[in-house]
């Protein structure tokens, strides 16, 4: 899970970064029409107005008059990222928080925010991780549309904030893409399982097993978890499902566990 979150955060970083104008450039502003105006220095005030220092003088862009404002990359941003990869969360945290506050409205705040959930997850503080995700989504709504949202849903479960997650998952299951629905079904099964509701959990896992075979990335997990639930329900088909995990998804992390159950 940790790896997946890190991956998701990095992916988010890439998503957020892959915009028309990129990171390594000096300060610039992008207008709503898509024009890029470069400068030598850039500041933002507390209201979100941007002051860009250009060759011909300074220009002010009021909030709403620009699509994006980007400052120079903070010196310690990469350092923070490396610290996270090394598991040094306590050291990374103050750096990221500093970037978030210092670079508000200047792009790097959301970039740092995208890394914060990983830090909290690494520290085992899921409640803080949830908050960090929510602050990120509030600041950069588009981040919710990517894979990051699965990391968020994952920590909601770990933080036992089931109520909020359930209604979201219900919506995805009912009307999301089949891939997302399959993932959401497993998560919803996880919630039921955490609450001790074995049959509802089994139903969700089985749905992915039987009717979402096209969601190949979820099959091993769905089979394994369904098998566990069937085992609790004393349903002999649990063994069949474990066998499928071992035989057809031998490379997955669930295969070893399944083998031990057979």
């Amino acid at each position: 899970m940790k790896k997946r979150i890190v991956y998701s955060a990095v992916l988010a970083l890439v998503v957020l970064v892959c915009l028309p104008c990129l990171v390594e450039a000096a300060a610039f502003v992008v207008t709503p029409q898509g024009n890029k105006i470069e400068g030598t220095d850039i500041r933002a005030n507390s209201k979100g107005d941007i002051i860009l220092q250009t060759a011909v003088g300074s220009r002010t862009f009021l909030k709403g008059q620009y699509a994006q404002a980007v400052a120079d990359k903070p010196d310690d941003f990469d350092k923070a990222r490396k610290l996270i990869e090394m598991g040094k969360y306590d050291e990374a945290l103050p750096i990221l928080n500093n970037i978030v506050s210092k670079y508000k409205f200047l792009y790097w705040d959301s970039q740092a925010q995208a890394l914060l959930p990983n830090v909290y997850v690494g520290k085992g503080d899921y409640v803080a991780a949830v908050k960090a995700y929510e602050e990120l989504f509030a600041n950069a709504p588009k981040a919710r549309e990517g894979d990051l949202v699965w990391g968020y849903r994952d920590v909601l479960i770990k933080a036992k904030q089931y109520g909020r997650l359930s209604s979201e998952l219900d919506e995805v299951i009912a009307s999301g893409s089949r891939g997302d629905a399959a993932k959401a079904q497993i998560l919803r099964g996880d919630i039921s399982r955490a609450k001790g509701q074995v049959e509802p959990a089994a139903l969700d896992y089985l749905r992915t097993v039987v009717l979402f075979k096209d969601a190949k990335d979820q099959q091993a997990e769905a089979h394994f978890k369904a098998a566990e639930m069937l085992e609790q329900l004393r349903d002999r088909r649990a063994q069949d499902l474990y066998r499928v995990v071992v035989e057809e998804y031998g490379d997955s992390p669930y295969a070893k566990q399944a083998r031990s159950k057979m």
Partner: peptide, 16 residues
């Protein structure tokens, strides 16, 4: 019954 329920819930949820 278990698998019947699984299909029933899928029908009710995914095909509103």
């Amino acid at each position: 019954t278990l698998y019947t329920k699984m299909v029933i819930e899928y029908l009710g949820e995914r095909f509103p």
